Simulated scan of single mutants.
Amino acid sequence: MADEKTRRRLSAQDWARAALEAIGEGGLAAVAVEPIAARLGATKGSFYWHFGNRDALVAASLDLWEREHTEAVVERAEAEPDARAKLRRLFTDVTVGTTRTAGNRIEVALLATASHPLVAPAMARITERRIAYVTRLYEELGVPAERARRQALLAFTTWLGHTQLVHATPDVLPDDDTSGYLDFVLDEVVTPEGLGGAAAP
C-alpha cells in the first residue's frame, strides 16, 4: 500500500528532475534507480510505474534539461522588445543566472559525456537550437546570414568557455558585480562595435 501511495504522489517529472540533479552532482553515472529512489523517499516500484528502465529515465531528464535550460531561457529572452535587448537578456541570464548554480554543473557533466548514445543526439539538437536562435537575433540586427551564424558560434563558444571556467577555475574570473566584466562581454557580443560594425544599417 505504501508503494501505491508513492506512485500517486510522485510524477515522472519528479523522477526526471531528481535524475537531472544527480547528473549535476555526479555525472551521468549518478543516475541509478535505487539512490534516486532514496533521494525521493520512494521505492523501485514507483520508478517502474513511470519508466521501463534507466535509459528511459535518462531520456526524460534530458528532455527536462532541454525545456528548462534552453526553451525557458529563449522564452524569457523573447519577452524583450527587440533583438539587441533579447541578446543582452539571453547572455545575462546564461552567464549570471546559471553559471554559478546547478545549471552550470549539469552543462559541464553532460559535456563530459557528450559521446554517450543517449546524450549525443540531445546535445546536438540542443546546441543547434541555441546557435540557431542566436543566429536569428543577429540577422534581425541586420547581420548577413553567413556572418550571423559565425557570430552566433563565437558567442556560444564564449559562453561555453565561461561555463567551463566557472566550473574548473572560478578564481580566474573577476567578480561580475564589481569589475564591469559582464558589461564588457555583453558589449562585445551585442553592440554594433562588438559586431565590427556589421549591424549598422
Score class of each variant (00 low, 15 high):
141 L>G: 07
71 E>L: 13
86 K>P: 02
152 A>V: 08
119 V>T: 14
60 A>D: 03
132 A>V: 07
40 L>K: 07
45 G>D: 10
85 A>C: 03
50 H>A: 01
155 A>H: 05
17 R>H: 09
1 M>C: 01
162 H>F: 15
158 T>L: 12
56 A>L: 01
138 Y>P: 09
155 A>V: 05
186 L>I: 05
124 A>I: 03
63 D>I: 05
171 D>R: 14
50 H>W: 14
71 E>T: 15
48 Y>N: 02
149 R>F: 02
117 P>H: 09
132 A>K: 11
74 V>Y: 05
88 R>A: 09
158 T>A: 12
137 L>E: 05
165 L>R: 04
56 A>P: 01
193 E>L: 13
152 A>S: 04
21 E>P: 03
162 H>G: 03
188 E>A: 15
67 R>T: 14
35 P>H: 04
136 R>D: 02
15 W>Q: 05
10 L>R: 13
176 D>Y: 15
44 K>S: 10
158 T>H: 07
138 Y>F: 05
30 A>L: 09
57 L>T: 06
63 D>H: 10
141 L>M: 13
105 R>M: 09
83 A>N: 01
28 L>E: 08
23 I>R: 12
160 L>Y: 10
129 R>D: 00
55 D>G: 12
61 S>M: 14
159 W>T: 04
188 E>C: 14
135 T>C: 07
83 A>L: 01
47 F>W: 11
68 E>W: 03
1 M>T: 02
63 D>N: 08
185 V>W: 00
138 Y>S: 02
115 S>Y: 11
152 A>C: 07
170 P>C: 06
12 A>L: 06
51 F>Y: 14
140 E>F: 02
50 H>N: 03
160 L>N: 08
140 E>V: 00
16 A>I: 06
133 Y>Q: 00
66 E>C: 01
172 V>H: 08
134 V>G: 07
180 G>H: 04
165 L>G: 08
95 T>A: 14
159 W>Q: 15
138 Y>D: 08
180 G>S: 01
159 W>M: 09
110 L>I: 14
183 D>E: 15
36 I>P: 12
92 T>W: 10
161 G>I: 01
90 L>D: 03
37 A>G: 10
83 A>C: 04
71 E>C: 00
21 E>I: 07
146 E>S: 09
53 N>F: 07
108 V>S: 06
192 P>Y: 00
165 L>P: 01
82 D>G: 03
